[in-house]
């Protein structure tokens, strides 16, 4: 596996930080080196949230991503802010329910996933992040979906069996959109 440098970004409350944490926990579960670095402070309150997640077979030096292998954006401001970070040939995942605009990048692989709509169809728009995560895992070999599922109780402090089941459904739905 090559070193994966993933930026997740969106509104505060869209589960951006949890999405990144799930990747980090799952990576650690698989014996990889991982770092997770969030944006923090007042900008998160009602504003944008983002996190940088790195998974590697080698020890990780900088936890800050200047060239991302993957960028996941859940809203328009995040697309504009983070698409420049993507390396040429990198993967750009866009939440097409909320982002009607196109990316300006033509040298990357762009996939539009109606994550929020799928989550609403499942009855809970908070799981849009899990739909996105499912899609991401179907497109790449960052971590195994099972490792992510095993990490639910670590990343979600107050999860319940019902919520976990919904999260799994959301991930599977995301995966099915790709396959």
């Amino acid at each position: 596996m090559k070193t994966e440098k993933i930026i997740c970004a969106g509104f505060g409350g869209q589960g951006i930080l949890s999405m990144g944490q799930l990747l980090a926990y799952a990576g650690m579960d698989e014996g990889k080196h991982v770092t997770w670095l969030p944006s923090y402070g007042p900008e998160m309150r009602g504003g944008t949230a983002n996190c940088h997640v790195i998974l590697s077979q080698e020890p990780i030096d900088s936890p800050i991503i200047s060239q991302a292998t993957t960028v996941v954006v859940m809203n328009l401001p995040s697309l504009r802010k983070f698409e420049p970070y993507l390396e040429s040939g990198g993967l750009l995942l866009i939440n097409s329910t909320l982002v009607k605009e196109e990316s300006g990048r033509v040298d990357v692989r762009t996939l539009r996933v109606p994550a929020t709509q799928c989550a609403i169809d499942l009855g809970r728009d908070e799981v849009a992040n899990m739909v996105m995560l499912g899609a991401l895992l179907a497109l790449t070999d960052v971590v195994e979906p099972d490792s992510v599922i095993r990490s639910f109780d670590k990343a979600f402090e107050h999860t319940t069996p019902e919520l976990s089941e919904l999260d799994v459904q959301a991930m599977k739905l995301g995966e099915s959109l790709i396959k």
Binding site: H33, V34, L37
Partner: peptide
């Protein structure tokens, strides 16, 4: 600093 305080690492 804030980077070490806020980041997660095993």
């Amino acid at each position: 600093d804030g980077m070490l305080g806020q980041m997660m690492e095993p």
